[in-house]
Simulated assay, not measured.
Amino acid sequence: MTLVKFNPEKKNSSLLPGFNDIFESVLGDTFFTDRRLSSVPAVNISESADHYHIELAAPGLKKDDFRVSVERDMLTISTETKNENLSEGRTYNRKEYSYSAFTRSFTLPESADVEKISASYNDGILKLELPKKEEARAVARQIEIQ
């Protein structure tokens, strides 16, 4: 048996020289890179005493583009947009259609009240407020020392 050391810093494999360079040149193209990075919007999730807060950064969309649904304990946020720019009477050498879609799913804690979830979209941020059930809210009280 022969052990072959793996060196992650070395781009070319000694067995197939130039093989990784081909994929790096194709996948490193800005056409693919821009679409890979922008396919899933960033999300911030926070918690306060009586709510869970989800903020999803999705600029350039309209509130009608979003679909927010809850099934059992799974919250799903998705969107799909298509932009086709067609001009009659022109000869195109290159024509690109804009299509973007994403789906983000989150498992909700048992303490979330799914019947009272609210959502708003303003300045490119989709905000969801998930209230906690009454019995799950943190009760804070001062204890007197005797």
Rank of each mutant, 00 (worst) to 15 (best):
Leu3Gln: 14
Val4Tyr: 15
Val4Ala: 15
Lys10Thr: 14
Lys11Gly: 07
Lys11Arg: 14
Asn12Met: 12
Leu16Met: 13
Phe19Gly: 05
Asn20Tyr: 10
Glu24Gly: 02
Val26Glu: 11
Leu27Cys: 06
Gly28Asn: 06
Asp29Gln: 14
Thr33Ser: 09
Arg36Tyr: 14
Leu37Gly: 09
Val40Lys: 12
Pro41Phe: 05
Pro41Gly: 05
Val43Phe: 06
Val43Glu: 03
Ile45Thr: 10
Ile45Tyr: 08
Ala49Pro: 01
Asp50Lys: 13
Asp50Gly: 09
His51Gln: 08
Tyr52Glu: 03
His53Lys: 10
His53Asp: 06
His53Val: 05
Glu55Arg: 12
Leu56Met: 09
Ala58Pro: 00
Ala58Val: 05
Lys62Arg: 14
Lys62Pro: 00
Val68Gln: 03
Val70Trp: 00
Arg72Trp: 05
Asp73Gly: 10
Leu75Ser: 02
Thr76Pro: 08
Ser78Arg: 02
Thr79Ala: 15
Glu80Phe: 10
Glu80Asp: 12
Thr81Arg: 15
Lys82Ile: 08
Leu86Ser: 13
Ser87Val: 09
Ser87Met: 13
Glu88Thr: 09
Glu88Asn: 11
Thr91Gln: 05
Tyr92Gly: 03
Tyr92Glu: 08
Asn93Cys: 04
Lys95Cys: 05
Tyr97Ser: 06
Ser98Phe: 15
Tyr99Ile: 13
Tyr99Asn: 12
Phe102Cys: 02
Phe102Met: 02
Arg104Ser: 07
Ser105Glu: 13
Ser105Thr: 14
Pro109Ile: 00
Ser111Met: 09
Ser118Lys: 09
Ser118Phe: 03
Ala119Asp: 03
Asp123Thr: 06
Gly124Pro: 01
Ile125Met: 10
Ile125Tyr: 03
Ile125Ser: 02
Ile125Asn: 00
Leu126Val: 01
Lys127Ile: 01
Leu128Val: 03
Leu130Met: 09
Pro131Ile: 00
Pro131His: 03
Lys132Gln: 13
Glu134Tyr: 09
Ala136Arg: 14
Ala136Ser: 15
Arg137Trp: 08
Ala138Gly: 08
